[in-house]
C-alpha cells in the first residue's frame, strides 16, 4: 500500500519537474512545479515527517509559489515564451537518465543499507520534537535565520520601491 502511494506521488513529482523545465510558458511551468511540490509534501508525510509536510504546503506551495505566480502575472512575463527555443526532449531525457543512473549507481555501490522500517520514537516528526530540538541544539541557527529573514524583508522593500 505504501509502495503504491510512493510510486504515484513520485511519478507526479517527476512529471511536474520535467514539465517545469520543458514547457516554454513560465506560468504553466509554475503550476507544474506547484503540483510537484504538493506531491513532494505527500512523500514527506509518508516519511512520518508531519511537521515538514505541513510546512511544505504552507510555505512552499502556499506562499513562495503564489509569490512567483503573482510576479509572473503582474509583469505579464508570458510573452517571453516565444523568444525561447523549445527544449529538445531527447536532450532532456538523455541528460536526466544519465545523471540519475550515475546517482543510483553510486548509491547501490554503498552496499546493503537495511530497510527503512526502522524503529522510530513516539513523537517522531511532531511539532514538539522539532521545537525542542530547535531551541536546544539549533538555537544559534534559529536566531541567525530570523536575522536573515529580517534582512530579506528590508532588502525586498528597498529594492522594489520606485523612489527611495
Amino acid at each position: 500500500m505504501e509502495a503504491i502511494i510512493f510510486y504515484i506521488l513520485a511519478a507526479v513529482a517527476v512529471v511536474g519537474a520535467l514539465l517545469l523545465v520543458s514547457l516554454r510558458n513560465p506560468l504553466s511551468g509554475a503550476f507544474a512545479l506547484v503540483s510537484a511540490l504538493v506531491s513532494l509534501a505527500g512523500i514527506f508525510a509518508l516519511l512520518n515527517a508531519e511537521f515538514v509536510f505541513i510546512l511544505q504546503v504552507l510555505v512552499y506551495a502556499g506562499a513562495i509559489m503564489v509569490l512567483i505566480i503573482f510576479t509572473i502575472m503582474l509583469l505579464n512575463l508570458n510573452k517571453e515564451e516565444l523568444r525561447e527555443a523549445p527544449v529538445s526532449p531527447i536532450r532532456l531525457v538523455v541528460t536526466i537518465g544519465l545523471c540519475a543512473a550515475c546517482a543510483f549507481g553510486v548509491m547501490k555501490a554503498f552496499g546493503n543499507i537495511p530497510y527503512l522500517q526502522g524503529e522510530i520514537a513516539e513523537g517522531f516528526g511532531s511539532i514538539e520534537s522539532v521545537g525542542a530540538l530547535m531551541l536546544s541544539d539549533f538555537l544559534y541557527p534559529f536566531e541567525v535565520i530570523s536575522l536573515v529573514l529580517l534582512v530579506a524583508v528590508v532588502g525586498v522593500v528597498l529594492l522594489a520601491k520606485k523612489a527611495i
Binding site: V34, I54, V57, L58, A61, G62, V66, M73, S126, I127
Partner: peptide
C-alpha cells in the same frame, strides 16, 4: 486528529488562493 492541528487549516487556506489567481 493531526499532530499539527491548526497549521493544517492555515495550509489549506493558503492553497485556496490559487482558485482566485
Amino acid at each position: 486528529d493531526l499532530n499539527t492541528g491548526i497549521l493544517y487549516v492555515l495550509a489549506i487556506t493558503s492553497l485556496n488562493v490559487y482558485g482566485i489567481v
